[in-house]
């Protein structure tokens, strides 16, 4: 019963199916970084407080440090690598650059993926909404002002939720 051996899982990450043998205790964050080499997802606190490791799990934001890789067998994961490349930034990344919404950049992948969920599912009608919606992500550089400005512009460009 206490077989802690590996389990085979197949996960779609950024549109590509990956099959790997994993230990049950392997965190999704470590699966992405160590098994798949997708180091865009950053690991900060590893207990769900900082938000740096946020990814999309079946379209909704989730802490990859509070999710086990075995739990996402058959699921769809999107990481910051899905959002664009250095040469062709995605719209959220471009808005962050335009508004100088990052300095050291460590928290940025988590913010980007959180915002990807927010733009899909939340009205973001005013700055208070936006600040509340970003409250699960910690940034120690920017003071948040420029992140809020970037999200405000993205929400305006998106228009009201249908």
């Amino acid at each position: 019963m206490t077989d802690t051996g590996t389990v085979a899982i197949t996960v779609s990450v950024n549109g590509v199916a990956h099959t790997r043998e994993v230990e049950p205790r392997l965190l999704l964050s470590d699966f992405l970084r160590h098994k798949l080499g997708l180091t865009g997802t950053h690991v900060g606190c590893e207990h769900g407080v900082c938000g740096a490791c946020t990814v999309l799990l079946d379209g909704y934001s989730a802490r990859s440090c509070l999710t086990l890789a075995v739990q996402v067998d058959g699921c769809t994961i999107e990481t910051v690598e899905s959002q664009g490349t250095q040469d062709a930034l995605g719209p959220i990344q471009a808005a962050f650059r335009d508004h100088h919404a990052l300095q050291c950049g460590y928290c940025t992948p988590g913010f980007i993926m959180t915002v990807a969920d927010l733009l899909e599912h939340h009205p973001l009608e005013n700055d208070e909404d936006i600040r509340e919606a970003l409250s699960g992500n910690i940034c120690r550089c920017t003071g948040y002002q420029n992140i809020v400005a970037a999200v405000r512009e993205l929400a305006k460009a998106r228009g009201p939720l249908t």
Binding site: M1, T2, E46, H47, C65, L66, L68, Q71
Partner: peptide
Amino acid sequence: IIAGGQSLMPMLNFRLVRPSVLVDIN
């Protein structure tokens, strides 16, 4: 038992709980 894991996973990560079996009900 693990459901959402938003309280249990931090405790597992800190090794405050060390179950021999994790039963996922998701």
